[in-house]
């Protein structure tokens, strides 16, 4: 497989992988690093990539594992995640900022447990079906449904709470 063929396979999923990484790691720099790292690993093992029945799911799983490892090592090192991108926001984030309700949703999502974050990201944002999510996260569809339901309800509750307080 040459570089072009490889890129043809991986580039369409790049942004999706990036979004998952960012959902977990929060920092956009770290998310970019995660994607780059995973692509390098995939490139090294590129001869095998065609053997996987679903290379996209495989890439997602690698990103998930990479990010969870990063988070674990951060916890172990007692380091706080640096939300550096909150300071230098790009255009999109500034636009998001303009909509208080939307940024509230993102904040609530940041506070969710990792599993719920991932399931919500893959389902509500990337619109994958349960079988793909179950392949990526190695969870059975029932667990995914329950996790998803919890995540959605938490977002709703928090959001309604905020609405009742009135968004300042």
């Amino acid at each position: 497989m040459n570089q072009q063929e490889f890129l043809n396979i991986v580039l369409p999923v790049k942004d999706k992988l990036y979004r998952l990484a960012k959902r977990l790691l929060v920092s956009s720099d770290e998310a970019e690093d995660a994607v780059q790292e995973v692509f390098l690993k995939l490139w090294k093992g590129k001869e095998k990539i065609k053997e996987y029945k679903n290379p996209e799911a495989f890439a997602f799983t690698m990103v998930k594992n990479y990010c969870l490892d990063r988070l674990k090592s951060k916890q172990a090192g007692n380091l706080k995640i640096v939300h550096s991108n909150y300071k230098n926001q790009d255009n999109l984030e500034r636009r998001v900022e303009a909509n208080e309700g939307v940024s509230m949703v993102f904040k609530i999502m940041d506070s969710l447990p990792e599993k719920q974050k991932m399931v919500m990201q893959l389902r509500d944002i990337e619109q994958l079906d349960f079988s793909e999510i179950s392949e990526i996260l190695d969870m059975n569809p029932t667990t995914i449904r329950v996790t998803l339901s919890r995540a959605r309800k938490t977002v709703r509750e928090q959001l309604i709470k905020q609405y009742n307080y009135g968004i300042g």
Binding site: K14, D15, L17, Y18, R19, K22, A31, E32, V35, Q36, D90, L92, R95, V96, N99, E100, G101, V102, M104, V105, F106, M109, Q121, D124, I125, E126, V155, R156, L159, I160, Y163
Partner: peptide, 19 residues
């Protein structure tokens, strides 16, 4: 109240990797 939830999801999908 639900509007921001769904618009957040569609906003989130527009985010792209720049590197």
């Amino acid at each position: 109240a639900y509007r921001s939830m769904f618009s957040a999801f569609s906003e989130a999908k527009n985010e792209v990797s720049s590197r």
